[in-house]
Structure formats: C-alpha cells, structure tokens
Amino acid sequence: MSILSLSPLDLAIASILILILALLSHLERLGIARTILWSAVRMAIQLMAIGVVLKALFEDLHPAWMIVMASIMLGVSGREVSKRQKQRFQKGWSYGIGTGSMFFSSFIVTAVAIFIVIQPDPWYTPQYLIPLLGMMLGNTMTAVSLGMDRLIQDVARDRMTVEARLLAGESWQQAITPYAQDAVRTGLIPTINSMAAAGLVSLPGMMTGQILGGNPPMLAVGYQILVMFMIAAGAGFGTIFSVKMASRRLFDERHRLRLDRLHKP
C-alpha cells in the first residue's frame, strides 16, 4: 500500500475548517473564536517543532538525547498538571506531586513496554520511545490533573465535614478516604471510557494514524491494544500516587486539615 503524502496546500485547505469554526463562534458570540485560532496555530507550531526534533533524533541516535527529550516532556507535562488545578498547593507542591506521579507511572510503564514487550534494538530507538512516552504522559497528565483537582476542590468545599470527622476522632487517612476514592475514580473515567469505546464508537488516534500512514490494520490494532493497556496502567498508577501525595499534603502531622497550604482561589 502506498502512502499518500500531504502537501502544505492540503494542510492549508484543512485549516479552512478551523477558520469556519472560529467565524461561527464569533457570530454566535461564544467568546472563544480567538482561543480556537490561537490553539490551532499553537498546535501546528508545536507539532512542526516536534517533527523537526524527531527528525534530528532519528538521524543522531544517542541515548543522551532521548533522556533530554524525555526530561523536557516530563517537565512540561508537570507544569500542565499544575496549571490545570483550580486551587494549587503553595511552594510548587502541585508541580512536584504532578511531575513525581507522572515520572513514577509513565516512565515505569514505558520502560516495561520498551524493555519487556517491544524490545527494540537499541532500546532508545526514538521511533518507539518518544511516541510511547508522549502518549503515556499525555494521558497520565489528564488523569492526574483531574484526580488532584477533584480531591482539592471537594475537600475545600467540604472543609467543615472533614473537620467534623477529625473531631469525631478519625485520623486524616480515615477522614480523606471517601474524597480520595472519588478523586481516583474521576481521574480514571476518561481512560475507562476510551477503553470501553475503542473500536466500537471510536478508532483510537494512534491506530488511525498508523493505518493512514500505510501500516496493516492488524499491526495497528496490536500496537493500539498495547498502548491502551499502558495508558490504563500509567493513568491508574499516576492518579493513585498523586491523590495519595496530595491527600498527605492536605494534612499535617497533628491530623489538621491545612487548606492554608493552598493558594487562594
């Protein structure tokens, strides 16, 4: 099967759809026309930049570059997790918890996929490492930020109830448990939904990309299943870890709820 390459003109034609959407938003006074255009431009620039970087990485195969690239991806995703919180911890704790959880989950799961399942030679082959890590971080980032945001919002709103439980002699672990459980569930809902809908309602992006790129469908399906397993595990580990860390940070050693550790909303 031959791959049909896309010219800049093809992409320009596709961008007309975004222009129409922005125009429609403007006419409907939704107040998001500018955001749509800016997001589209930003997305195109970011993807072109990563394309250039990947091209360079493919040509100069060295593990140090992979580590630099992975570190940058981790740092940026940690910042995104922190930015997505309505109420953040002070002193960079949201960034620390978000980045730590994603490192813990995404890197371990990607390492399992690379060293045990796929086993490319060498292990730092960018064709495998970068896309897999990118997909892991992207999905884990969503799960971690949803989970942490839900936890902090719920506890801040229910402060008096949490304190009533503490006054009843509960430890901070007992008082936070229902909130932590809800937060983990919230973080994992998108992942669970995407697994349930895969192949029936939607064709996952990676699989679609591979098929459009000319790969045989069954090969694309195999990789997609692997990626789905990885994403579910990574998002789950990351959310559980981050919710546990954030829960701990919400209380001090005397089991006192410390909402003063959050920035004012």
């Binding site: 503490l166 006054l167 009843a168 002699g169 509960e170 430890s171 005397r254 089991h255 006192r256």
Partner: peptide, 9 residues
C-alpha cells in the same frame, strides 16, 4: 491528635 479530640469533645 485523634485520641486528644475524642477526649476533648
């Protein structure tokens, strides 16, 4: 602290 809070209601 949890024990203290059950003593001091």
């Amino acid at each position: 602290a949890p024990l203290w809070r059950t003593r001091v209601g």
